[in-house]
Design a protein around this nucleic acid. Sequence first.
DNA 1: AATGAATGAGACTTCATTCAT
DNA 2: TATGAATGAAGTCTCATTCAT
Lengths: 178, 178, 178, 178
Amino acid sequence: MRADAQRNRDQIVAAARVLFTANGVDTPMEEIARAAGVGVGTLYRRFPDRDALVNAVSTDMFQRLAEAITAANASEKSAWAVLQRFLRSWSEFRLGLLQDPMCHGIPAAIEADPELREVRQRWLDLFEDVIQRAQDDGDLRKDVGLLEIATFMNMFIRDERSEVTDRILDVMLDGLRA
Amino acid sequence: MRADAQRNRDQIVAAARVLFTANGVDTPMEEIARAAGVGVGTLYRRFPDRDALVNAVSTDMFQRLAEAITAANASEKSAWAVLQRFLRSWSEFRLGLLQDPMCHGIPAAIEADPELREVRQRWLDLFEDVIQRAQDDGDLRKDVGLLEIATFMNMFIRDERSEVTDRILDVMLDGLRA
Amino acid sequence: MRADAQRNRDQIVAAARVLFTANGVDTPMEEIARAAGVGVGTLYRRFPDRDALVNAVSTDMFQRLAEAITAANASEKSAWAVLQRFLRSWSEFRLGLLQDPMCHGIPAAIEADPELREVRQRWLDLFEDVIQRAQDDGDLRKDVGLLEIATFMNMFIRDERSEVTDRILDVMLDGLRA
Amino acid sequence: MRADAQRNRDQIVAAARVLFTANGVDTPMEEIARAAGVGVGTLYRRFPDRDALVNAVSTDMFQRLAEAITAANASEKSAWAVLQRFLRSWSEFRLGLLQDPMCHGIPAAIEADPELREVRQRWLDLFEDVIQRAQDDGDLRKDVGLLEIATFMNMFIRDERSEVTDRILDVMLDGLRA
DNA sequence: AATGAATGAGACTTCATTCAT
DNA sequence: TATGAATGAAGTCTCATTCAT
């Protein structure tokens, strides 16, 4: 891919990530294009329809989440500390998982996009591992799992970040403690 | 207001509540009218624009929430038990507070609609009272307040109800415990 | 249907018939709406998409063709005379059969629209009957049938009418003579 | 012109001829470029706009038609036999004369393109000559001329070739007989 | 007062054409 | 020179809102 095309692609995904998180996946394509500094046509050349763009943003997000866990694994000792740090990173990133692609079954969109599927799976594996270890250590309550935590984060992330939401995350972490 | 007009109004609000909660506040007006068994014209006669309808649904919801607290107050002994029951009722009602009308400041829409303002205030007073009492009893942690709890419920309510979401509410309640 | 709605519907179909015949079935919907003196929205309320409009125009055309045969049957003695008169009427009406709906198999669109299907069948029956009789009388050559004649008329009709096209029809009629 | 440039040009015209005949002159330029194995840029370097490409394809077609007459002249004895053979060749070539460039007056496009004009004129002369001779021989009816025959072929050619269309051509030839 | 028809602005998408690489 | 990326105008369709019946 040509250098300028790649740069445009990146700008489009970045703009879409911000706008999708802020205003929902229904944000007008024209607005996304404008925010990315390109014409609509360019956007559509790269992403044939809205779903393709949503998938690209999701892929990007899963990648960032996987990186966040990896980073936390490297710097924290206990699994519980990793989990805490990861969830706080997640909160800071405002990485809303569009259309709940991981919580409520596996939609066709994910099946159809191998790259999305793979990066999502990599993140799930890392996440599952942390949860398992934290439960084995007796730090994380045993009646919750990836599904509960991810679902919570997903609803949580949709609100603007504020002191209030930070406190909610604290409460949730206390509740999760075994 | 004539009896049939009142019946129409009620049906419209009921239909809107269901559809707003299920499909978001962007649900086409025509669809709401159809679900209510009336023509669009009738809907617009009653509610000059979408905001007016949203306000009416919000008013209805605040009323139900106030009733839920009142009922819990009547049947539970401790404030903490009232709070628990109330939050579970809220979860059962799926009463999403559209457009966060109560959590993030006081939007102009609420100011402009005296009835909405009043019923919202009545509910806030009841809620604040329960929280205060639960904290006085030493049952509810002191670093959270109405804002945190309502914000959480509001994000929480947007997801379909399921075993997973029920468990999330449990975790949150444990986290809230002093 | 309300009187004004019916009038609009008729105007839309009439405008579409003219424009489809002149400029093809790709004529912009907006242009059709303008020619009919209505807004695009009205057009789309009546006909959910282009195909629906094409079907309506086709239905209208088949109806007119059936009437033309019926009229010719009433005023002419021999089947051959009926055929001649019918083909000349067809030429005068400029009733292009959009998308060849009757010549090349039976497209799904026709199957899916009972009214279109029925009116088309009625016309086919009348037409087949004339052809059969003309052949029995020894006036029409036996190596052609409805398919050939309709296919010819269909390609023929797409051109503007002129002295040249009139002469072409004469030649074809001579060629059809047994 | 460099050899590879010439090869590109030829491939583009060939691809356009096929696609124009199959899908109409509205075929997307990108599709034509792809079929020709070049980029759109190359296509536009050779042909500044769609009209230029249409003209080039038309030129190519007139050339082929002229060759077809010349070949028929060489192998058939009577002018009528030449005419028959030529019309059947035309039918086999599927050489639709795009945009009726020769039948309905002389559009500006032809005037503006000397090469197109010349090759078209050469073909017209050959064609006119055959017609004249066939009429002189008493084989071709005298109330038709080049205009009628070309117009017919032009409408005829737009349909897919099939047994049905072959039969239509037979009928027309019989009709043309004096 | 109720209905549903009409309007037109705006969102989505395609593609002819231009232009940077 | 060849490529294919970018642009934006134009067409399709939807829906909030108004208004005739």
